[in-house]
Simulated assay, not measured.
Amino acid sequence: DRPAAIRLSGAFHIAVAATRGEGVITDFLRGLISQSSLVIALYGRSHAPACGHDEHVAFLKGLEKRDGDRAARLMSDHLDHIVADLDLVVHREPSVDLAVVLRASRQ
């Protein structure tokens, strides 16, 4: 269920940011995630979720060990993976219902 996967992945990233208690940063990230979810839904090449479960687990382990350098490298690799899956040249009909993807961003 690609729309649900995109929505849940965004929720994961917001939850990680929210643990820091920085409301302004979390709100800013919420806006970025809404926009990036739209881009992923429209231009993602693969039908698999853009954010892999394994990447999230590895990132959390880096945070858990308080290894900021590792966590930063893993997040950078994660973002590179997402960007690599985008096809920003080809214009086609959306493969997912955007209303379903964006519905959770209002919550």
Results as ranks from 00 to 15, higher is better:
Ala11Thr: 05
Cys51Asn: 09
Ser95Pro: 00
Val100Cys: 03
Phe12Ser: 01
Ala4Asn: 13
Ile40Asn: 04
Ala15Gln: 09
Asp54Ala: 14
Cys51His: 14
Ser76Gly: 12
Ile14Asp: 05
Ala17Met: 10
Arg73Leu: 08
Gly31Val: 00
Lys61Pro: 01
Ala11Met: 15
Val96Gln: 08
Ala50Pro: 03
Glu93Gly: 03
Arg20His: 06
Leu86Pro: 00
Gln107Lys: 14
His78Leu: 10
Pro49Ala: 15
Asp1Val: 11
Gly62Trp: 04
Phe59Thr: 01
Glu64Cys: 02
Asp27Thr: 06
Val90Arg: 04
Arg92Ala: 12
Gly21His: 06
Ala41Cys: 05
Leu102Arg: 15
Val101Ala: 14
Val89Ala: 14
His91Ala: 13
Arg103Leu: 12
Asp54Phe: 04
Ser95Ile: 07
Glu55Ile: 00
Val16Gly: 04
Ala99Trp: 11
Ala15Leu: 10
Ser37Lys: 07
Glu93Trp: 09
Ser34Leu: 09
Asp27Trp: 06
Ser34Asp: 10
Arg20Pro: 00
Val39Trp: 04
Ala41Ile: 12
Arg7Ser: 15
Gln35Gly: 08
Gly23Gln: 14
Ala58Arg: 09
Arg45Ala: 06
Arg66Tyr: 07
Asp69Ile: 01
Leu88Tyr: 06
Ala84Asp: 15
His13Lys: 10
Leu74Pro: 01
Gly62Ile: 01
Val83His: 04
Ala99Leu: 13
Asp67Met: 03
Ala99Pro: 00
Ala18Lys: 02
His53Ala: 07
Pro3Ala: 13
Ala17Phe: 05
Leu98Asp: 09
Ala18Asp: 14
Ala84Val: 02
Leu42Gly: 03
Arg7Gln: 14
Arg70Glu: 10
Cys51Gly: 04
Glu93Asn: 08
Asp77Gln: 14
Glu22Met: 03
Leu79Trp: 14
Arg92Phe: 02
Val101Gln: 14
Gln107Val: 10
Ala84Thr: 01
Ala41Gly: 15
His81Asp: 09
Asp1Trp: 08
Glu22Gly: 01
Arg92Gln: 13
Leu29Tyr: 08
Gly68Thr: 06
Ala71His: 06
Cys51Glu: 13
Ser37Arg: 10
Asp67Arg: 05
Arg73Val: 03
Gly52Val: 05
Gly68Pro: 00
Arg66Asn: 09
Arg20Ile: 03
Ala5Phe: 12
Ala104Lys: 08
Glu55Pro: 02
Ala48Thr: 10
Asp87Glu: 10
Ala4Glu: 15
Gly10Gln: 11
Asp27Asn: 09
Val90Tyr: 04
Gly31Glu: 06
Phe59Val: 00
Val101Tyr: 13
Ala104Glu: 13
Gly62His: 05
His78Ser: 07
Ala99Gln: 14
Ala18Pro: 03
Asp85Val: 02
Val83Ala: 15
Asp80Trp: 08
Val57Phe: 13
Leu86Thr: 11
Arg7Tyr: 05
Cys51Ser: 10
Asp69Val: 03
His81Met: 07
Ala4Ile: 08
Ser105Pro: 02
Ile6Leu: 15
Ala71Thr: 04
Arg66Val: 02
Arg92Pro: 00
Leu88Ser: 04
Ile33His: 01
Leu29Ser: 02
Leu63Arg: 09
Leu74Cys: 07
